[in-house]
Amino acid sequence: MNEYQELTWQGLWKNNPALVQLLGLCPLLAVTATVVNGLGLGIATTLVLIGSNCTVSLVRNWVPKEIRIPIFVMVIAAFVTIVQLLMNAFTFKLYEALGIFIPLIVTNCAIIGRAEAYASKNPVKFAAFDGVMMGVGFTLVLMILGAMRELLGYGTLFSGAELLLGDWATVLKITVFETDSQFLLAILPPGAFLGMGLLIALKNALNDRVEAMVVKPQEGKVVTRARVTGDTAADS
């Protein structure tokens, strides 16, 4: 497995920021009421992650160890500001829908975690690719969780896609079932926690199954025991 494959595997599955590292839970739980919100925040986070990973990797040899964290945070904050202004300019409705959670990307531990753990130790091409894969892994979880909650809560999928993609995207909205009474629990924060827990459980269950298939059970030594009680006593 070369470095790129390893990074893909780590970012999307084995070390997924949302399902395994459990980082960035605050936006994850707060904005995933619909698929589109999840996708929007996921893309924003991915962009910030790529930018910060590249920059941190470029300056890694000049940053003194003692003050690296403030510097990483400032780099991240700069990229968050860029993304925030871009969203303000081009996807204003989504910008309003996501609200405080766009500036809060700064505090998303997944980003500073990657800067510290990977980008500050590796060349820029790997760091950028790591940013892409971690970002995509995070976005996928946001979207799946958003889909679960939107389906249960509103009975739709991709509602509000026009906020992100322009007016033509209204056709993307799929109404799975009509409901007069929304299942509020799915939309409220407790639903996010429950959904997240179920997703993690599902991931772990799949993991066990995959590992059981991939890893051949090793031939263990067969331990034989001499029985000293029970049957022998009955024989005599």
Partner: peptide
Amino acid sequence: VMLLISFPVQ
């Protein structure tokens, strides 16, 4: 409680 916060009307 889940029902009460999810479906307050019913």
